[in-house]
């Protein structure tokens, strides 16, 4: 393996940065869409009227997880053609799963006696949701969002295959031309994006989490 330093630095400093904005777009839009769909859906699946559907829907979600990311991207391409559209739709669907799963798991894990006490004190179902269930679920839901974010950063690479651009363009070029330097340059930016996004979401989580859950974060996660 002979490493072409010129090619690498040209890729790292000139070619790859041009794809950052495209790639972020491929991450952030699906992520926001996924949160907007999956969280309400997850909440709905824990409401008494829909709870009995919960298991069935979750097993559909679990089965969805077995479809390889390449296939999810590919499946929308015949329907929507080339470009951003199918890539964003596919990535959104891919990001839905961890968020919905964690929302359902987190709300289901709220201790029954806490909910019983809240109801016994005269809280309405809405008050129980917003004052008890959701605050207690923040760490687990946010862990799902982080998972989805990291997953989306790397899966978005595949968008390049269906004309969705992004950092995948430079990585696939590296594969096709057997140029290790291009792959490395693109991957470095992917890693950076994943780290930055993860940190940003952790900060957000810190703002949303009630004080005591921070202290024993580990314990709570394990319990959930």
């Amino acid at each position: 393996m002979n490493f072409d330093m010129d090619l690498f630095s040209q890729a790292l400093l000139q070619r790859a940065p041009g794809h950052i904005a495209e790639h972020l777009q491929l991450v952030i839009i699906p992520l926001v869409l996924a949160i907007l769909i999956a969280m309400p859906a997850g909440i709905l699946l824990t409401r008494p009227a829909y709870r009995h559907h919960g298991r069935r829907v979750m097993s559909v979600f679990n089965a969805g997880q077995t479809i390889p990311p390449l296939a999810v991207i590919a499946l929308f391409f015949p329907l929507l053609g080339l470009g951003y559209g199918p890539a964003i739709l596919a990535l959104t669907i891919y990001a839905l799963l961890p968020i919905a799963r964690n929302t359902v798991a987190a709300i289901s894990a709220v201790p029954a006696e806490v909910k019983d006490a809240a109801r016994g004190m005269g809280m309405t179902p809405k008050e129980i949701l917003f004052r008890v269930e959701l605050p207690l679920s923040v760490p687990t839901i946010m862990s799902g969002v982080k998972t989805a974010a990291i997953l989306t950063v790397s899966t978005a690479v595949l968008a390049a295959l269906v004309g969705g651009k992004g950092m995948g363009a430079i990585i696939f070029a590296g594969i096709n031309f057997f140029r290790f330097e291009l792959v490395l340059a693109g991957t470095i930016y992917i890693g950076l994006m994943a780290i930055v996004l993860e940190r940003a979401l952790s900060l957000l989580e810190g703002l949303l989490t009630p004080a005591h859950l921070k202290n024993r974060h580990g314990a709570h996660r394990r319990a959930a």
Partner: peptide
């Protein structure tokens, strides 16, 4: 786990 699989394939094939 955070590195896209295609990158790992691309890196290791060299």
């Amino acid at each position: 786990f955070c590195i896209p699989s295609i990158s790992l394939f691309g890196l290791f094939m060299s």
